[in-house]
Design a protein around this nucleic acid. Structure first.
Length: 345
DNA sequence: GAACAGAAAAC
DNA sequence: CCTCCTTTCTGTTC
């Protein structure tokens, strides 16, 4: 299996688009609009990483680390179009392709080493962007290989190296193990994947749930999932945004929700899909996420208004929660194809 | 089995 | 001090 991962994607795109920034620190930012520099770093180039800037870091803190750095707003539409170009190149070279995010792909091909090299070159020729390719037997191994080789790298792992690399990795380097699972595993004395071996599978399932528990058990004994899922369609569309200030005022919150709903509907319109469920998202002052949703017996389209439901769901939330609201969002899910007919079911 | 809410993760 | 988007899983309730 191949794993193709674009190097510091958004920031690299900005480097290519603005050659005058060559060799400077470039950080692509998500500005929240609360204050001048509120928001976080999305992606930063290696010059920026060298001085300690990381993705997820508040923009204000990053600016302290790089007085002369270039801090640009994310231009998602443009990054998406480049992602599509790359997607086309990969698909024309591989037998099976899974696009796992805007800048990452898993793929199968006849001769994977040769194909990987060719893809790297074709991407460079047509976009001027570098990427890193990992080749291994499993999905996890391919991903670990590209992680290890980046940036602008190429790494092939045979079965034995693949197993060793995974076995000796700290658990938090494994895709699927985040901060919570890491902490819980560390408490059990598990630091690396190899420490998982020998743990009782029923204890793992009891502690981490059926799915994760069984997956961790298999990981420990060297069984890695390898399926490629060629899904194309998205299952939901959502928009989230920050309020100017934390508040509980219905008018202010509603105004933002309506604005976000309009944006999410644009996506919906573009996809020509209908939805069965509307969800409002609330992030309170303590950064906890809450949701309120309503499903409809008949799928709704881009034309229908949800104002009544939005007001009702919002009131329901505020009546049961006394914290202030920091951010809000709207989500359309349960997407279905409708082609004009409303009597599909 | 659907609806709803929340947790966790990846990006 | 704290952005945005999507997926997957789990528990609960009806």
């Amino acid at each position: 299996m191949l794993h193709i991962d674009m190097d510091y994607f958004f920031a690299q795109i900005e480097e290519i688009r603005n050659p005058e920034y060559k060799n400077k620190i470039i950080a692509v930012c998500i500005f929240s609009g609360r204050t001048e520099d509120s928001g976080v770093i999305s992606t930063v180039n290696y010059e920026g990483r060298n001085v300690g800037i990381k993705s997820g870091m508040p923009i204000v803190n990053a600016k302290k680390l790089a007085k002369s750095g270039i801090f640009l707003p994310a231009d998602h539409k443009y990054y998406e179009s480049i992602s599509q170009t790359i997607d086309g190149l990969i698909r024309s070279n591989c037998t099976k392709v899974e696009k796992s995010s805007i800048d990452e792909w898993y793929a199968l091909a006849e001769d994977e080493v040769e194909t990987g090299k060719r893809i790297k070159l074709e991407i460079l020729n047509s976009t001027n962007l570098t990427c890193t390719v990992g080749v291994a037997h499993s999905r996890l191994g391919a991903k670990m290989a590209s992680d290890k080789a980046k940036p602008n790298g190429f790494l092939i792992l045979g079965k034995e190296k693949e197993r060793n690399l995974i076995d000796n990795s700290p658990v938090e380097k494994i895709i699927g193990i985040g901060p919570k699972t890491k902490d819980e595993l560390n408490e059990l004395g598990v630091k690396t994947v190899s420490d998982l071996r020998g743990l009782n599978q029923f204890i793992l399932i009891e502690k981490f749930g059926k799915k994760t528990g069984a997956w961790l058990y298999n990981l420990g004994i060297g069984i890695y999932d390898s399926e490629i899922e060629e899904r194309i369609e998205k299952g939901e569309f959502s928009r989230i945004g920050s309020l100017k200030e934390n508040t509980r005022e219905k008018g202010k919150i509603l105004e933002k929700i309506v604005e976000l709903e309009r944006e999410a509907k644009e996506e919906l319109k573009y996809s020509k899909k209908f939805y069965k469920t509307l969800t409002l998202i609330f992030i309170t002052e303590d950064i906890k996420m809450h949701t309120k949703s309503r499903s409809f017996s008949k799928p709704r389209g881009e034309k229908e208004t949800n104002l009544d439901e939005i007001k009702k769901l919002m009131s329901e939330f505020l009546d049961n929660e006394r914290k202030e609201v920091r951010r809000v969002g709207v989500k359309f899910s349960g997407l279905v194809e409708m082609d004009g007919q409303t009597t599909l079911f």
